[in-house]
Amino acid sequence: MRHPRKLIFVCTGSDCKKSGGKALKKQLKAELKEGQLKGNCKLISTKCMDMCKSAPVVIVEDHFLKKTNFSKVLQQLKKS
């Protein structure tokens, strides 16, 4: 069964936070509240995903994004 909304998992482990994961989560949250993604996506915070060398880590649907940033996440959301 397909979800009506796309799922975005953001790692909130300590290494991901230090590498920009906290700011990334904040940007995504703001975009989901007011931007074009409003109502289309669900943001989920996770504990450490054990990919600390690739921090920050985000999963969009079934795609892992390593060493990612806001623009890369938006690109992946448009693709899926």
Rank of each mutant, 00 (worst) to 15 (best):
L37F: 14
I44C: 14
V73P: 02
K26T: 01
I59N: 05
I59G: 01
I8M: 05
E31H: 08
V58M: 02
R5Y: 08
M1L: 13
L28G: 02
N40W: 13
Q27A: 10
D50F: 15
I8F: 09
D50C: 09
M51W: 13
S71C: 03
K29M: 01
V58K: 01
S14P: 01
V60I: 05
C41V: 15
I8P: 13
S19D: 03
Q36Y: 02
M51P: 00
K79S: 05
L24K: 02
L7I: 12
K25H: 07
Q27N: 07
K29F: 00
V60H: 02
L28R: 04
M49I: 12
G35P: 07
K6M: 10
L24V: 03
G20Q: 03
C11E: 04
K67E: 02
Q76C: 07
E61A: 13
G13Q: 05
K79I: 09
L7P: 02
G39L: 00
S14Y: 06
F9V: 14
K33F: 04
E34S: 13
M49S: 03
K29H: 05
N40Y: 14
C48V: 09
C48D: 08
R2P: 07
K67F: 01
E34N: 15
I44L: 15
K17A: 09
V58F: 03
C41A: 15
F9G: 07
M49Y: 01
C52F: 12
S14R: 08
R2N: 12
T46V: 14
P4A: 14
P4D: 15
V10E: 06
S80K: 07
D62K: 13
Q75W: 07
E31M: 04
V57W: 07
L28P: 00
K26V: 00
N40F: 14
P56C: 10
Q27W: 09
K6N: 07
N69V: 08
V10A: 10
S54V: 06
K38M: 12
G20S: 06
L28H: 06
K67D: 00
P4E: 15
A30E: 08
G21C: 05
F70E: 02
